[in-house]
Design a protein around this nucleic acid. Structure first.
Ligand SMILES: NC(=O)c1ccc[n+]([C@@H]2O[C@H](COP(=O)([O-])OP(=O)(O)OC[C@H]3O[C@@H](n4cnc5c(N)ncnc54)[C@H](O)[C@@H]3O)[C@@H](O)[C@H]2O)c1
Ligand SMILES: NC(=O)c1ccc[n+]([C@@H]2O[C@H](COP(=O)([O-])OP(=O)(O)OC[C@H]3O[C@@H](n4cnc5c(N)ncnc54)[C@H](O)[C@@H]3O)[C@@H](O)[C@H]2O)c1
Lengths: 217, 217
DNA sequence: ATACACTTGTGAATGATTTCACAAGCTCGG
DNA sequence: CCGAGCTTGTGAAATCATTCACAAGTGTAT
């Protein structure tokens, strides 16, 4: 009962399922603001661009959260989803690469709001080291290993030029980092116990390009 | 023979396939720089984090590009993939929202390099309108419909606050935009003839959070 | 207390994607 | 020209994900 979520996590959960859970959570949060008390799988589905059966199946991997005939309690399901996604705690995040993207991410309030706390930003450029962004100080990349040894961040965001990405990742991993959000357009080679997610904007544009080129047939 | 790529595109191509093609292309470009002439599906797979059978299957949807016993010619496959992905031409892109993310994207050289030409950036903030970023001038969002009527961009990048995203998308779609790359963390509701790709960084972090929380079992 | 309208949770069916496995084709060395 | 060694291209099989369909609850109205 302490962790309804955990008790079911025997079979591997598909990536696509986790992404949808994230989407449901966001919609639930919006609904709560609007004062909605209860929501059906069908309403959740329409907003999330999926089907009600999909919503129920996704949730069923983790437990049984709804009331038949009624739907789901917005606050209860919100809390369960946060639990499932591991958002019940704060995660320490470092940003590596204080360039255009790193800067945008470091100043973005949305992450803190969801429990991702940026503890430090690193760069190799002497012109950037020591500069302050709001509450965040850009630190010297040569310190990263020492800092990680002291407080290991849960997640490292990699926002360095593509040619530096693998080396930087190797350094972080050697220092103990187990999860990386990579913005460089390259497939990082990492050991099996390290998780990587990629945000590849050029790839998304290419996906649109493919669709546009193949509209005809 | 003019378009080997097009001749096969009868059955729908999976999204995952298109993403991998994108990855293969990037690796091929790197290999070309290193002077590699020929590459096997196995080498392509290792670098792309997949299997050689997957590589061959992906390519087989579009034609037959390799030589048995030898592998694929790097320049030929590069060119075929560019063709398949619709990168043989230049795409006009507008950026809507000249904030932290919009600015990073507008100044990013990687997009131009791959044929995505940013023609304009729009914002509603009078303090931003009229400012210049490199070669790009921030324009008044109230002009967007008139500008689109003149030259319809192929793709619009949406980088406005989440509460503005649906309205901004509706405006763009009404004006004729058929493809959107959305950075706002919301599921846009769009008509069937409009393609949307989402870049949702918070969702990626939540994916890592889920993995980290469920490592134990 | 019963009927009615609704909605969940979930096996089973269907559909999609990935992996397997191997015949067929190419190159090279002798 | 032949055999050895590779590597592709592709049906068939296996795996994975989504959709269907419906029994089993739940709330409400009468
Ligand atoms: N800017 C974008 O819109 C955008 C879009 C898609 C992808 N990306 C990718 O994101 C990455 C960063 O892009 P950007 O535009 O912010 O580049 P940028 O050049 O503005 O910033 C990169 C920063 O990394 C620093 N750096 C270099 N080597 C480093 C190292 N070893 N350790 C720590 N810091 C190091 C540099 O000093 C610089 O400040 C690139 O891989 C780029 O391809 C960027
Ligand atoms: N900054 C990040 O790292 C980051 C990360 C993840 C997601 N996002 C998302 O990207 C979007 C933009 O984020 P940001 O950090 O760049 O925000 P921002 O506030 O820096 O920029 C938003 C810009 O959009 C402009 N704008 C507002 N309404 C507009 C409209 N109707 N038409 C045109 N322009 C309009 C604002 O004037 C502002 O310049 C948000 O939805 C945010 O949630 C940002």
């Amino acid at each position: 009962m302490i962790s309804q979520a955990r008790s079911h996590s025997v079979k591997r959960i598909a990536d696509s399922t986790v992404r949808r859970l994230s989407a449901y959570l966001r919609f639930l949060e919006e609904s709560a603001v609007d004062g909605v008390e209860t929501i059906s799988s069908d309403a959740l589905a329409r907003r999330g661009g999926t089907t009600s059966a999909q919503v129920r199946k996704d949730l069923s991997f983790f437990g049984s959260f709804g009331k038949r005939g009624l739907g789901y309690s917005v606050p209860e399901l919100t809390s369960s989803l946060r639990d499932i996604l591991g958002l019940g705690r704060e995660w320490n995040v470092i940003i590596v690469g204080a360039g255009k993207i790193g800067m945008a991410l470091g100043q973005y309030e949305g992450f803190e709001q969801r429990g991702f706390h940026v503890t430090a930003v690193y760069d190799t450029d002497p012109g950037k080291i020591g500069t302050q962004w709001g509450s965040i100080l850009v630190r010297d990349m040569s310190r990263v290993e020492a800092d990680i040894a002291e407080v290991t961040p849960d997640i490292a965001v990699l926002a360095v030029p593509v040619g530096e990405a693998q080396d930087a990742a190797d350094r972080l991993i050697r220092a103990g980092v187990k999860a990386i959000l990579n913005f460089a357009p390259t497939q990082l080679q990492v050991p099996g116990d390290v998780s990587v997610r990629n945000v590849n904007m050029a790839m998304e544009l290419e996906g649109l390009s493919f669709i546009l080129s193949n509209r005809d047939r």
